[in-house]
Design a binder for these strands. Structure first.
Lengths: 334, 334
DNA sequence: AAGTGAACTGCACATACGTGCAAGATGAAC
DNA sequence: GTTCATCTTGCACGTATGTGCAGTTCACTT
């Protein structure tokens, strides 16, 4: 009779019933406690549990007649489906990131189906998203790491694998790690390793994703992204990126503001998927916040990497304005 | 810039933003009030508004691994998709009805799409449902009245049309009234009227519904359904129903416990759709509560009228038990 | 059998929330 | 411009809800 551990089943059953009574019949928690023969505080906790585990699914749907203006402008200008997260302008960058990640995490379930494959990068943004995922009952789903995370001081497994683990847990999915350094010292090593069958297997998965999830790295902002810290790149590398007008990276692949990657030497040593591979993924979701990332977003859009963009309101506004200023960005996806 | 009345648009926009902040970012109403520059109580009202108008969509999903036992049993036994509404056993029939109707109303949106046609009967149950509908932004939807509502003391327009109006409002739909008596005195009048083109139009719509919604009438319960009151039927009629072993009606068409209708004289004079017409509707949703309706449900299931059943827990239990007792009911739909 | 840690419970308190009410705003009618 | 009806707002209050804590249960060790 039990599907799971015997009392887990009871807990879920109670949570389900409490949710029906609370959200579908508008009873108070007090009344529900009485019906279930428990205390009101337990009901409160049952309901929290139900929300966290996705038993209760709350979504906010902007009516088609009245889409967010910024979202419409971004779609028209850049051909990207935007989800603008309302955030007051004076918010700190940390809060901004957290709020965008929270919103994105709650909508991510929409993209995940049974038998689908989800590629995830790692980084501060994706990590924040991973902390707020709402579980969804799907099966035969796979989570694939998009790029290596090893650096000079650690194999990077703990940090990146923690992110992946959360995704795997939320979607009841099998996790495919990608245990390679973020950047190789020698491009030949990368090429050699890429020919290994164990790597080929992961690489093949990366080429047939249904959904890809990533942030964008921003090299020269006041608060540079994780990747640009000295644990990953030499000072020389950083200089060369600067000289080559790099404005950002997606999964450790660098690009310029026009989306081009040609001649960026570091990309021969990075572990992320080449853009023409990534672009084969039907849904490519980018989560990003903060004005400092503007140029990075612009570049990623120009490179045609993004189909769905989760972004805070202020940055969205800058994005739209930047197009009015310069006219760049039209030659993009879709 | 405005899509609707200028301030209605603002209200909706604020409600939308408040909903995102509250449900997607977990801010308190106080914080939202601050961001929107209004009072906390206004935010509370905005959120109520958002829920009532379907801007916020809350659903409770029972995980596939753990469906309600009664629902599974009903599906296996009767071939009907059941939605069992949890209600404590000591609840009064009035509350029971209200709670089932509330739950059903909130799920009804699932069945309604753009360009679809929804047929609704009238009665205490459907009326209760109509009072709790959650609007849904669809277009080119039609609501069609299934059976006439005129009786000896009124044309019945006010009561039935109020129900229809609520459906029309919730789904932004055009409403097709059916201005005829519930029962004709003379079957020939009915036949004559049915040949009128104005009636033909409605009848044609009834034959091509996407969804039908109805309760079941119960004639001989302690609290008989509306239809069986003297305003609709003569004492003679009631006696004849009793003699012919009628256990219930769907949209003023009567049936026996085995689902048969042959030889029930009153059906020649009723205004509802014949069962073989009704059965052509792909989705046929029945909402019902209370043990007194058990035989009526059994008959409606046996007649193959129901694809989706919303029912209170106690009655669901009786329904399952009744099958174990008698073995009737297997020869049903699907 | 006693020990141990993790999970769960109800209590009590602090907070967050819903709502009647009166004042103010808005808009249509004259 | 005035009047009146209607809708909206913020306040204040009472109720509903979230959560730290201490006590308990329960499964699993030792």
């Amino acid at each position: 009779m039990a599907t799971d551990h015997p009392d887990l089943t009871t807990r879920t059953r109670d949570a389900l019933r409490a949710s029906q009574l609370y959200y579908l019949q508008d009873l108070t928690m007090e009344a529900i406690a009485h019906e279930l023969g428990t205390s009101r505080s337990s009901v409160s906790r049952l309901l929290s549990h139900a929300r966290e585990t996705g038993l209760v699914d709350i979504r906010v749907r902007s009516p088609r007649e009245m889409p967010n203006i910024l979202e419409r402008q971004i779609l028209e200008t850049f051909g990207v489906t935007a989800h603008v997260v309302p955030v007051p302008d004076h918010t700190s960058d940390v809060d901004r990131l957290e709020r965008v990640a929270l919103s994105a995490a709650r909508m991510l379930g929409e993209y995940v189906d049974s038998n689908s494959t989800l590629g995830v990068a790692w980084g501060a943004t994706v990590s924040a998203v991973s902390r707020h995922l709402i579980p969804r009952a799907v099966h035969d789903t796979q989570i694939v790491q998009l790029n290596g995370a090893g650096n000079l001081t650690s194999t990077g497994i703990v940090y990146a694998s923690e992110i992946l683990r959360r995704f795997g847990e939320a979607y009841n999915a099998q996790v495919q790690q990608f245990p390679v350094p973020a950047f190789f010292d020698d491009p030949l090593t990368k090429q050699a390793l890429w020919r290994e069958r164990s790597m080929q297997r992961v690489l093949a998965l990366q080429e047939h994703l249904d959904v890809a999830l990533f942030g964008v790295g921003s090299p020269f902002a006041e608060v540079p992204s994780h990747v640009y810290s000295s644990n990953f790149l030499d000072p020389d590398d950083v200089v060369s990126l600067q000289e080559q007008n790099v404005v950002g990276d997606v999964a450790t692949v660098f690009y310029r503001i026009d989306g081009s990657t040609d001649g960026i030497s570091l990309n021969d040593r990075g572990s992320g998927p080449a853009f023409d591979v990534l672009r084969r993924t039907p849904r490519r979701i980018c989560v990003v916040s903060g004005a400092a990332r503007l140029a990075s977003i612009r570049g990623a859009i120009a490179a045609g990497l993004i189909t769905d963009l989760y972004v805070d309101e202020g940055t969205a506004r800058l994005l739209v304005a930047s197009h009015d200023d310069t006219g760049i960005g039209r030659a993009s996806v879709r």
